[in-house]
Amino acid sequence: MEPVVVVRYSEIGLKGKNRGYFEKKLIDNIRKIARPPEISKRYGRIIIRLKNMSFLEIKERLKYVFGIQNFSYAYAVSHDIDEIKEAVKKLLSLNIKGKKTFKVQTKRSFKEFPMTSNELSAYIGAYVLEEFDNLNVDVHNPDITVGIEIKEKEAFIFVGKERLYGGLPVGVSGKAILLLSGGIDSPVAGWYMLKRGLKLETLSFLSPPFTSEKSVKKILDLADVLSKYTPDTLRTHIVPFTEVQQYIKSNVPDRYSLIIQRRSMIRIANKLSKKRKASAIITGENIAQVASQTLSNLRTIEDVSDIPILRPLIGFEKLDIIEKAKEIETYGISILPYIDSCVAFAPKNPATKSSIGELKEIEQKLDKLFELEEKVFNKMESYTLGRES
């Protein structure tokens, strides 16, 4: 009887000829993030042999691996019926507290096993009733389900399944640049794009001396949380944006200053994307949440980008974003009172409507804008975060 973890995936199983690539990437990511003693793909499952590692330790690590639908603590046993019974009894003894009903569900892919799936389920069910007086059968809505999978060379016995986030393994969908502010939304946006298999680098804009070293630490702490979901390191870039903002503040009508700032940020993000071979930009923008995020202004801002801008939170309720931020443990960092560049130079009455033509006309009169964007880009500081740093 060997303790193992049976790992299952759903969306990857729907892939066609490239399914093997996704499976290999998921196994590689589990190796790097969860660091199991032994892992292999067998019988359409990923099997982790625990050896001397505790289940609680591997369970805590697996929650950071995207691509896993659910997993079970299990025993790998031989086809011997007495060994199967022993594993069932041991697992139920560990999980029976507060449970009143059960069912047994068997999948027999190895057809040479002497019992059918239904026969084995009935046999083990009768055994459980004998061993546990407080349990009754309920095949429709049981408190606990005993799972038995009969494979060619061994059987896996487990109780229940622990659900994870699903999604795709990080790295299978390419690379994108996340515009990471110190707010609540952008870390959550990055989390959702990691879940869709994107590898991330982050880009932040600060305004020294109006923003302090505490703002830098805040950005790095947020990026560090996201790095836990990546199999490798996460590169974080911080641009000192003050000169650009001061120039815009002095030369642009106040109501348009924030939109021009955002267009500058997107141009700089495009520079970084080209340098770092990223194919998209991610933002935490949410339709009509603030003045710069009206449909009109979003269109005006994205006009300067040569690559797609992904907005995973565009239709979310703010409360849903907050709940997710709390769940992934970025909320407590995001609400720290250390401002980012947008707050430092926010206009009093920002425009809620703008046109591309009007903004281009304003920028044509800003002789030094593009030069300053290049200057601050060259002053960018980069950090490496994550498990290999």
Score class of each variant (00 low, 15 high):
E2K: 15
R8Y: 00
E11W: 06
E11S: 03
I12Q: 02
I12K: 04
G13V: 08
G13S: 11
L14K: 13
R19H: 01
R19S: 00
G20C: 00
I33F: 04
P36W: 00
E38I: 05
G44N: 05
M53G: 02
F55M: 12
K59I: 03
F66R: 12
Q69E: 10
Y73K: 14
Y73A: 07
V77M: 01
K85E: 01
A87T: 15
V88N: 08
S93L: 13
L94F: 08
N95Q: 05
V104A: 02
Q105N: 05
T106A: 11
K111S: 09
E112D: 04
M115P: 04
N118G: 06
S121M: 08
I124G: 07
L129M: 15
E131Q: 09
F132S: 11
D133C: 08
N136K: 15
N136V: 14
D138F: 12
K151N: 07
K153C: 07
I157Y: 03
K161S: 04
Y165H: 14
G166R: 03
L168V: 04
P169F: 02
P169N: 05
V170D: 00
V172A: 01
I177R: 09
I177D: 01
V188D: 03
G190F: 11
L200Y: 10
L200R: 15
L203R: 08
L206G: 03
K214G: 03
S215R: 11
K218R: 04
I219H: 05
D221A: 09
T230L: 04
T230P: 02
H237V: 10
I238V: 13
S257T: 09
R262C: 02
R262W: 06
K271I: 07
R276D: 06
I282K: 13
E285Q: 08
E285T: 10
I287Q: 07
V290R: 05
T294A: 05
S296I: 10
L298E: 06
T300G: 13
D303E: 14
V304T: 06
I307P: 06
P308I: 08
P308D: 06
P312I: 09
E317C: 12
E323D: 11
E323C: 00
E329H: 14
Y331W: 13
V343T: 15
V343Q: 10
A344G: 13
A346Q: 15
P347M: 03
P350R: 15
P350Y: 09
T352L: 10
S354E: 11
I356T: 11
Q364C: 07
K365A: 10
E381Y: 14
S389P: 15
